[in-house]
Simulated scan of single mutants.
Amino acid sequence: MSRKPSARPGLFGRLVRRTLLLGLVVLIVGPIAAVAVYRYVPPPITWLMVERAFEGRGFDRRWVPLSKISPQLVRAVIASEDSGFCHHHGFDFAAIEKALHHNAVSERLRGGSTISQQTAKNIFLWPHRDWPRKGLEAWFTVLIETIWGKPRIMEVYLNSIEWGPGVYGAEAAAQHDFHTSAARLAPAQAARLAAIIPDPLAWRAARPGPYVRRRSGTIVARAGVVRRDDLDACVYP
């Protein structure tokens, strides 16, 4: 008597396909839903904030709307971090190519990430570099550029980045370093804050060393170009 073939291989195959489909849906729909929510709701906390809290660095973050952040800081950050912010769609391929060339011949590493990429990483992903994170960073960058737009990206960025041990966002940084509000930052103060973004745990805006002083002076000049050439026009439509 012949036996009927087992249904288990077919059942296992269907289970694998359903699992893969579910994973694909989660990877596509989950990020879209999260980005859509944060278009209107301030992101409450980031992976980096949690990590720093476990390190005992404290937590000071005071969310303010973009209208209560000085345009001086917006221009300084564009000048320092992403001069093409208003002209790219999330990725500055020329800057990436320059960074790769620079890093190949220099020990001092240079990043090619745009403000949009930094925002995607800071809000949605873990801080340590690896290939899965870079792939997800690209996906989230496309989403926030599409769903949020430039003003919201800048608003979230300035309210979320690290500006010292346990200090996050422009308002907390302005109060901590200069005892003023983010709305009242002077050009030199804004430039100092922009200057320390690459290494906020080592550099200080309130008591800058020689390198930060030189860098902030350069940023003041470049921020003037940002204003003159309307390189911040997408933030203030």
Rank of each mutant, 00 (worst) to 15 (best):
M1F: 10
M1V: 12
R3V: 11
S6E: 00
R8M: 11
R8T: 11
P9Y: 04
L11D: 00
L15W: 12
L15N: 01
L15H: 06
L15T: 05
V16Y: 00
R17N: 09
R17Q: 11
L20W: 09
L22K: 06
L22G: 13
L24P: 05
V25K: 03
V26P: 10
L27Q: 11
V29K: 06
P31G: 11
I32N: 08
A33W: 12
A33E: 01
V41W: 13
V41F: 08
L48P: 04
L48V: 15
R52H: 07
F54I: 00
F54L: 07
R57P: 05
D60G: 00
D60F: 07
V64Y: 03
V64L: 10
L66V: 13
I69A: 05
S70N: 06
Q72P: 04
Q72L: 14
L73K: 02
A76V: 05
A76Y: 04
A79M: 07
S80Y: 12
D82T: 01
G84N: 14
F85L: 04
F85D: 03
C86H: 07
H87C: 05
H88G: 05
H88Q: 08
D92V: 04
F93D: 10
F93Q: 10
A95D: 08
I96Y: 05
H101E: 12
E107F: 14
R110Q: 15
G112L: 07
S113F: 15
T119D: 01
A120I: 01
K121Q: 02
K121M: 03
W126H: 05
W126Y: 13
P127M: 09
D130E: 13
P132S: 06
R133E: 14
R133H: 04
G135Y: 01
L136E: 06
F140N: 01
V142N: 01
V142H: 06
L143G: 09
L143P: 03
I144G: 06
I144S: 01
I144P: 03
G149V: 06
K150P: 07
K150I: 10
I153V: 11
M154F: 05
E155R: 07
V156C: 02
Y157Q: 02
L158E: 07
L158D: 07
N159R: 12
S160L: 13
W163S: 00
V167C: 06
H176V: 02
H176S: 10
F178Q: 12
A183G: 03
L185F: 01
L185E: 00
P187V: 09
Q189T: 08
A191R: 01
L193W: 12
L193Q: 08
L193Y: 09
A194W: 04
I197M: 10
P198R: 04
L201P: 11
A202H: 06
R207C: 09
R207M: 12
Y211N: 07
V212P: 02
S216I: 13
I219R: 11
V220Y: 02
V220K: 03
V220D: 03
V220S: 06
V220M: 07
R222W: 08
A223V: 12
A223P: 14
V225D: 10
V225K: 12
R227K: 15
D230F: 10
L231C: 03
D232F: 14
A233L: 08
A233E: 13
V235W: 05
V235T: 02
P237R: 14
